[in-house]
Amino acid sequence: MDGKIVSLLIDSFWKILLPGLKITIPLTVITFAIGMILALFCAMVQITNVKVLSPLSKFYIWIFRGTPLLIQLFIIFYGLPKLGILLDAFPAAVITFSLNIGAYNAEVMRAAILAVPVGQMEAGYSVGMNYFQIMGRIVLPQAFRIAFPSLSNNLISLNKDTSLAASITLGEMFLAAQRIAARTFEPLALYCEVAFIYLIMSTILAKLQTWGEKKLSVHERREN
């Protein structure tokens, strides 16, 4: 390989990784956390069939699962200023990604809670526990175990999807790579490099998933 390209790759590696550490990872973590809170809330109001909130959460999920993420970003960042709502790139990204991942995870959590046998609830009632105690201590921990692989999947997707925020001027990894590519006229090398960094991140997340699954399945391990 050309020595010039090698030194370019080495030089640019930190310039791409740094925004990765400063923006991509925090963005992923923050939005996934907010998304999980949203998801749990939506799943619970649907399962307990709360008036108004239940159809409202269905509507929200319908919208955010049914439209492209890139367009959601554009509406919130470029569109909302028309209504006088002017957001910086980072908060706009946080809002969009949280709402988007929340919609997906809401369905995952709803299905997982319904997958816990109803007998668990009844056993809780029979020893005098109330609905929230049983939900919090018995059903949700089991539902979380069931949902964990799907949630991990969504987390890995989310991490990669944050690259879309480059299109709303957020200086994350992909935008950093784009800028260097434009300056050096080496798009192939730099886009491969940034893809490689995403690959490393996804691999680490997948490893964490395997580790987490093992941790969570303690109560499922059999003797034989």
């Binding site: 668990q120 809780g124 921990p141």
Partner: peptide, 13 residues
């Protein structure tokens, strides 16, 4: 007290 046909033990305990 109630004892269930399918035991219904808390699976995570």
């Amino acid at each position: 007290g109630f004892v269930f046909q399918s035991y219904n033990l808390f699976a995570n305990k």
